[in-house]
């Protein structure tokens, strides 16, 4: 049984890697299995985690107001299903409108506070050690970079003249950022594949000690 598991995993691993050469039967089969099985798996988690645990167990012995609250969610969910019927299909827009409104409202504040607000605060907060001249330069440099970066994102003015120059500096800072995150992740990606090859050549083929 264990050998079967290893052979199956090996076959699936090779199937995915084979896509690098070109699309082929084995890859298509792996893709079909992957889609079918994982969609099923996700529905099972949705069902037991959300519908059973959060709703069904949630209404057991709950106060009336909580019960009504949970039933409302189910009502919205059922409205979602009205799409299946042409005549009342428009009802499904209500839950959709609800979700979009709530997401927009909720995340507007979250993003505003944790992205805009906190980052501005962090930029003007001097680091705990402002001892060396290097620290001071870094502090000012970060401020200049952030400032120019914001100019780059400005929509209501053409990037010309001094303004354009600042925007250009802004792009440079963005490029440093992109380069840094690229360089930062590249190397760690290599060890991912090492793990898979170790499985294939070690655990499956037994070639590695």
């Amino acid at each position: 049984m264990e050998q079967f598991g290893i052979w199956l995993a090996a076959l699936l691993t090779i199937g995915i890697i084979s896509f690098l050469y070109k699309d082929n039967i084995l890859y298509k089969a792996c893709e079909a299995i992957f889609v079918g099985v994982s969609a099923g798996y996700w529905f099972v988690t949705y069902f037991w985690d959300n519908l059973y645990r959060k709703f069904y167990l949630g209404i057991q012995g709950a106060e009336l107001s909580d019960q009504i609250f949970l039933w409302m969610a189910v009502a919205l969910g059922v409205m979602m299903l009205t799409r299946l019927f042409d005549k009342i299909g428009w009802l499904s827009r209500w839950p959709l409108a609800f979700i979009i409104g709530a997401t927009a409202g909720l995340y507007m504040m979250t993003y505003f506070v944790s992205n805009a607000f906190v980052q501005i605060g962090a930029t003007i907060t001097p680091p705990p050690s402002m001892e060396t001249i290097g620290d001071k330069i870094s502090f000012v440099l970060i401020a200049i970079g952030t400032f120019c970066g914001l100019i780059y994102f400005f929509f209501s003015k053409e990037h010309k003249g001094a303004f354009g120059g600042a925007a250009k500096v802004g792009i440079w800072f963005l490029m440093v950022t992109f380069g840094a995150s690229f360089g930062y992740t590249v190397m760690s990606r290599m060890s991912l594949m090492l793990g898979r090859f170790d499985f294939l050549f070690g655990e499956w083929l037994g070639l590695i000690k």
């Binding site: 003007i124 001097p126 401020a143 400032f147 400005f154 209501s156």
Partner: peptide, 22 residues
């Protein structure tokens, strides 16, 4: 445009804050 005004607020804050700190 309104968004740009937000950026102006941010930029002014950064300039004032950094200047004061320096």
């Amino acid at each position: 445009k309104g968004q740009d005004l937000g950026k102006v607020v941010a930029m002014v804050a950064i300039v004032l804050g950094t200047l004061a700190a320096t």
